Simulated assay, not measured.
Amino acid sequence: MWRISRKIILYGSLTIIVFAAVIFAKDIQRKAAYFYATIGADRGTDAADVQGLLATDFDQEEGVVHERRSPNESGSRYWWLNSGGEFIVHDGIGSTVEGELDRFSKWRIVYNISNAPDTDEGRHPQNLFRLISRSKWLDVRQEIRFRVTRDNISSSPNRNESNGVVLMSRYVDENNLYYAGLRVDGAAVIKRKKNGAYETLAYKKVFEGTYDRESNPSLLPKLEWITMRSVTQTLSDGGVLIELWQQKDGEWEKIAEALDVSELAIRQTGHVGTRSDFMDVQFDDIRIEEMNFLF
């Protein structure tokens, strides 16, 4: 009888523990859903009326741009953080989240549930950083000054040679855009993403070394400021020209160029912005200019 009672007590205790664990997990999911539903939902502000030029060096700004589900929910008049948790502006520098988030951070909880593999169980939402303008542009030149402060050596299979720091243009949505930038394998790249499918339009090695996911995971310099420019414009014959430039010793050098004449070319206006993958990045000057505004 005693053995039977002990078994009943044991099974009952296990049932209570499992039940409590399920309730706890559901509570975490509920809280994550609450964060998604309420963060910024009642704090959105109207987008600024940008006419031809958007420039900042962050010297006159201080604060945090929080990730939002849509541009209309952004608390910034100029920027929409589509992914990455937070864009932090302090002491004249903008930056991704740097280092590991506190275990009780709301973004750590959200990303641990929504995309644990790519964010190291939510510790590094900056692995998926996407900062996008709220204004839309057609023929545009954009410049950015940035430095990589740390690589995040994630176990995610999506940490690979294609990662880097890039400038996005004609961003219609996350599945339709151009991007041009520098990859961790030391190459300059220009790509088109159309209906979710990437196509490489240009690729050129610009940094020395051999990429290896484990032993040499990035050829991009650390703690060294890099100034990069992209140009996107539709030519008279309908082709879309995309150029990537890098400033070296005060002089601009074109490091990649592509002419998209395909039926998939993106010829409509879109947002612009920057993205980085699996790294901590600081930003200084950002300048966006309409091409017609330059002349």
Rank of each mutant, 00 (worst) to 15 (best):
F278G: 01
Y211W: 14
Q247V: 03
V184W: 08
D151S: 05
R6T: 11
D280I: 03
I255V: 15
R68M: 09
K248Y: 05
N72C: 06
F207V: 04
Q282V: 02
V140K: 11
D260G: 10
K136I: 05
V281F: 02
N158P: 00
G273L: 02
R43L: 09
W80Y: 09
A33E: 08
Q282P: 00
S105V: 06
T149H: 00
V18Y: 12
A41D: 12
A37P: 08
N176Y: 01
I113E: 10
R123I: 01
A32L: 00
R130S: 14
T96F: 02
I16N: 03
T232V: 13
S155N: 12
G196F: 07
V172L: 12
D249A: 11
Q51F: 03
L259K: 14
P125S: 10
M228F: 04
T15E: 06
R69F: 10
E253P: 07
M168E: 13
R103Q: 14
L14S: 13
K191R: 15
R141N: 09
L128F: 04
T96K: 02
K191P: 06
D139K: 11
D102L: 14
T119R: 12
Y78T: 05
T149Y: 00
R30G: 08
E243M: 11
G85I: 08
R229E: 15
Y11K: 11
R103V: 14
D91Y: 00
